[in-house]
Design a protein around this nucleic acid. Structure first.
Lengths: 230, 230
DNA sequence: CCAAAAGTGTTCATCGTACACCCATGT
DNA sequence: ACATGGGTGTACGATGAACACTTTTGG
């Protein structure tokens, strides 16, 4: 038996907003590419793709992100669905935008180069095609809220990380310097970090202690109605 | 010239989560209906509809809400897009959920009855079909955040409203009593209300002063980076 | 011994919260 | 006169922001 006959079907696409954090630099970067097909060939664009019949939209988002970065299982969050009629001059296409955050040295260079993609600092972004610039703007807003509200930052760094490293990430996300005393106090007050006995000695003579995020503890607290807040 | 050939097309739907506030009662209600068609005929469901080729998704959301309530131009906000493969047993359908908030006495009774819809307090909701209960849960969460963050409450009440009325709305949204002194202080401190010389005398002997929301002032402040917070 | 980054405490203003009584008026 | 909801102020603790010096150690 068939339901829902005679309804219009549409093309449904995914656009992926992939932020990368580069520990060395102090800015978030965005992975964008020059389009290889019409319409708008050669213009700067987000990575995208169409949702197939046999995959969920989340799967489609992960698939397109994988095609570009070679990374599996990145943190990806749905941002918003863009469905104005004229948004894509190539046809009537509704697009679900997703964003993610990856370690910038983690991606697969071959994949990226194959697509003609580049990492561009978010303060230096060129105009993007269609409504992609709007998508990015919305993504940055949402990312900042997420970073305050949920410990997404930790998932970006290696399992062991130092507090100055984490602070650098937050400074990149908010594009503003933070007071290290306040940052450290607030962070440790949540009791979600486990101090290790080991030091990181690359970036300073003195060395900074490594910490580990206590995921289990975090989930326990969450269940009790705890609110992460930085 | 045709682009994007040979891609799968999908059915794209809208589901509308319509909250209503009834000044008399102290609870938000949700407008749900018994499905008139298969699959899941007779079960409780949100109002929905398919996105047509020649309308934006926002327009489709407004259209379906209008069909059910007879109201034009209600505040409607996109919530989330649900696209798991098996979410609708009737076929592969991706649905963009929207939510809105209306004055409960404002809707058109004929429209509502024609669809077999009812207002149900959010604490007494039955199981809904498919993933509709999840949609509602998400909508309540987002509505609460919105109400703290943006003055959506005001748009729900008549142009002239009293502070106790507004407080009642917030109590309904958060499902918790608020301290009237603190509520009033914080509210007035923002300087967004204009006190009128007139009193509302229905609900008390003494009467409560009417206020008006200063929309222009609000937009001015917004432009300067003001954050609404209640 | 010096440069460079890590680490550490205190003060102050602000904000959220808890709390109890008087006011105006219709019946 | 009394019941009903409207309106007001204060005190306390928690939180966020500003701010400068000492420590460690590789070179």
């Amino acid at each position: 038996m068939k339901f829902y006959q005679n309804q219009d079907k549409l093309l449904l696409a995914i656009d992926s907003i992939i932020f990368g954090f580069d520990e060395g630099q102090h800015e978030l970067k965005l992975l964008i590419l020059k389009r290889k097909f019409e319409p708008a060939m050669g213009k700067w664009s987000l990575m995208g793709g169409f949702v197939q019949k046999d995959e969920s939209i989340d799967e489609a988002a992960k698939r397109t992100a994988f095609q570009l970065t070679g990374l599996q299982d990145v943190y990806m969050e749905q941002l918003y669905t863009f469905g104005d009629i004229g948004r894509d001059p190539g046809g009537r296409i509704v697009s679900v935008a997703y964003f993610s955050l990856i370690k910038i040295n983690d991606y697969n260079k071959e994949h990226v180069e194959k697509h003609g993609a580049s990492w561009i600092p978010i303060s230096e972004l060129p105009d993007l095609i269609f409504d992609h610039s709007e998508m990015v703007k919305k993504a940055i807003r949402k990312l900042r809220i997420r970073a305050r509200t949920q410990p997404i930052g930790f998932e970006l760094l290696p399992e062991k990380f130092t507090i100055p490293q984490l602070q650098g990430l937050y400074e990149a996300i908010y594009q503003t310097p933070l007071d290290k005393r306040n940052f450290r106090r607030k962070l440790l007050a949540m009791g979600l970090l486990k101090k290790l006995d080991e030091k990181e000695k690359e970036s300073s003579k003195k060395g900074a202690f490594y910490y580990r995020f206590r995921k289990k503890k975090y989930e326990e607290l969450l269940a009790k109605g705890f609110n992460f807040g930085l």
